[in-house]
Design a protein around this nucleic acid. Structure first.
Lengths: 208, 208
DNA sequence: AAAAATTAATCAAACGTTTGATTTTTATTA
DNA sequence: TAATAAAAATCAAACGTTTGATTAATTTTT
């Protein structure tokens, strides 16, 4: 069994294809045979490179969720006002959710799966990280009397809930947004619309 | 193959147990054998009463989603103001999401599954129904110049997104809300907190 | 006794994984 | 540089297990 970090071409092919398929069909919806065919590799390559299907899945989550976290930390500039931070956070998250649609879909599925014991805790921890970043800004703003007193916990769920529902959206969501199809739904115009909307929502909720 | 509506005791046992298990583990996570054991019936009873596992699953979604829709229509009293309607809607939906946690979890999983072709469209249609109810109220309020002009499509996703994320919440959400465990998280106090929060959010977003 | 409900036994298909052989690449030796 | 050895990558085939479903026999109900 070879589980070394060294990436070969086929290994990357597998990872990329698996990410796409897991996002579309979920963990159980992707058989090792399907993955082998779609990625143009052999069935045995999964065990060969990752040890098992589940370990490959873990690696995908691991890699991408870690990337998410580090991106946010850059924003923690002590000079910025809470308002500036909050608007910057919105830009970053919207950008990220629209760009990494596949990962959002995978996490969306994983959140409530209750299978793969350890992974649930792992995803929970990563979510908590992301929650905390926003929570700290909101609390800073409230402490400095810049923000109105609000239910910070629920406001954070509102932000992520809106984005989650949007990105995982089905036909009903396309229609609700007035988008002709799935591609238009994810284009730059709609992305900007989301940024404006969320910033406005936060303004209305937090302004005194 | 017997798929008659006539409910026997074992048939109801199966339905109730399946609903619980599907909510916990998802469609693929519940094998027919597990379901038979947990419900205290025999494996063959699934085919006997429902034709197949999938048809049983469909019946669960069908029954419960239809119930959701009809409940809302009662609220459409022409005498009420948009504000009254909106607050009533919040009460109804929060109540429903907290009471029917299992169904919310099943729908949450189904929304982004892409398996079971026909069911996705079915769920989409039901979601659209629920969206429309709120959309109409918001548009009525805006038309009558009672509400401020807002992005109605996204506001609706915010409401459902907040509820969805909350109900399907994991450890990260418990913590964020300051709940000690999953039971406290779903108790009446938190339910009321959600109602207050959502009404307030709508007030802030829609008030002139 | 006929019908309906329930059971244990059985089925083919699909699953994730492993195997042993083969090819391709890399490193070593002459 | 050519020949050779070692390592890594790839493959088709098979493994044992689990899956959803069905059968035929049995029990219960009417």
């Amino acid at each position: 069994m070879n589980t070394s970090i060294k990436g070969t071409e086929k290994r990357e092919q597998l990872l990329e294809c698996a990410k796409k398929l897991f996002a579309q069909k979920g963990y159980d919806g992707v058989s090792t045979r399907l993955l082998a065919n779609e990625s143009g590799t052999n069935l045995a390559m999964i065990s060969y490179y990752f040890g098992s299907k589940e370990e490959m899945y873990k690696e995908i989550l691991d890699k991408n969720l870690i990337k998410l976290r580090t991106d946010v930390e850059v924003l923690q500039n002590p000079k910025s006002t809470p308002w500036e931070k909050l608007n910057a956070i919105v830009d970053v998250y919207v950008e990220r959710f629209f760009t990494n649609k596949q990962m959002v879909q995978i996490v969306f599925k994983e959140i409530s799966s209750n299978k793969r014991e350890g992974l649930s805790k792992f995803v929970s921890a990563k979510m908590m990280d992301n929650f905390s970043v926003i929570e700290n800004i909101i609390e800073e703003g409230m402490r400095k009397k810049i923000f109105r007193k609000v239910d910070g916990g629920l406001l954070i769920m509102t932000i992520f809930g809106t984005l989650m529902i949007y990105i995982n959206g089905n036909q009903a969501c396309y229609k609700m947004m007035g988008a002709k199809n799935g591609e238009e739904y994810m284009n730059d115009a709609f992305k900007e619309r989301m940024k404006v909307y969320l910033k406005n929502l936060l303004k209305n909720q937090l302004s005194k």
